[in-house]
């Protein structure tokens, strides 16, 4: 009974395991986010094209992603693909796919609104200077929209990091799962471990997400100059 709850964090490899779990979660979110930014830019530009068919399809894609809970998507890709198509993905691979599928839609919508927020005369000025379409985008429009995009993109990233706690259901051992394992393993010796373990997990999430918001704020200021 003299055993303080906090000791559970430092017994054996427990703390290292928590860090590994955090890294597993972060890795999924970062890779998915990198892919989402790339694909999201393309998707966002596509959505600004005035074409009925394209707009309709993008709309369906976007709404599907928003309506479907991520958990359902995870199950579909991890178990569904193995059952129906014989595609046996690892849990991490499936998570990255689903998060990218989700992130691309969200990112695309953000890019779209950032692009249409750039005044038409900017596009016209580019054309007047004899720039090709891609040059107008690359040198004029995209640099202006990036600044508008940053805050919401970072909030998407932190949302992604937090949503990784779902991937445990397809067998990826991430930080929350490691925490539960530690709590469970010590539940006969240290029933009060939960508070400390969850506290540590909270701090880990904070330590990961806070620098990203800070970085975004700094970049935003820099780009504004």
């Amino acid at each position: 009974m003299q055993d303080l709850g906090i000791q559970v964090l430092f017994r054996g490899n427990n703390f290292l395991r928590l860090l590994e779990g955090m890294w597993a979660a972060l890795r999924i979110a970062l890779i998915a986010m990198a892919l989402s930014v790339l694909l999201g830019f393309l998707f966002g530009m596509l959505m600004t094209i005035h074409n009925r068919a394209i707009q309709c399809i993008s709309r369906i894609y976007l709404e599907t992603v928003r309506i479907m809970p991520q958990l359902v998507l995870l199950f579909l890709v991890y178990f569904g693909a193995a059952k129906h198509m014989g595609v046996n993905l690892s849990g991490e691979m499936a998570s990255i796919l689903v998060f990218t599928f989700w992130g691309t839609a969200e990112m695309g919508d953000l890019v779209r609104s950032a692009l249409i927020a750039v005044p038409t005369h900017q596009y016209e000025s580019g054309a007047a200077l004899g720039m090709k379409k891609w040059q107008t985008y690359f040198y004029i429009v995209i640099p202006q929209s990036v600044r508008r995009l940053l805050p919401s993109a970072v909030s998407l990233l932190t949302r992604m990091i937090k949503t990784t706690s779902l991937v445990v259901l397809i067998g990826v051992v991430e930080v929350v799962k490691v925490g539960k394992q530690i709590i469970d393993a010590s539940r006969y010796t240290n029933p009060k471990a939960a508070l400390w373990v969850y506290g540590a997990i909270f701090l880990l999430y904070f330590a990961v997400c806070f620098p990203f918001s800070k970085l975004a704020a700094v970049l935003e200021r820099k780009l504004a100059e």
């Binding site: 469970d184 393993a185 010590s186």
Partner: peptide, 14 residues
């Protein structure tokens, strides 16, 4: 299971 002590759980050494 990895969190159902004492049937299947992960000890402090992983």
């Amino acid at each position: 299971f990895s969190d159902k002590n004492p049937f299947g759980y992960v000890d402090e050494n992983g």
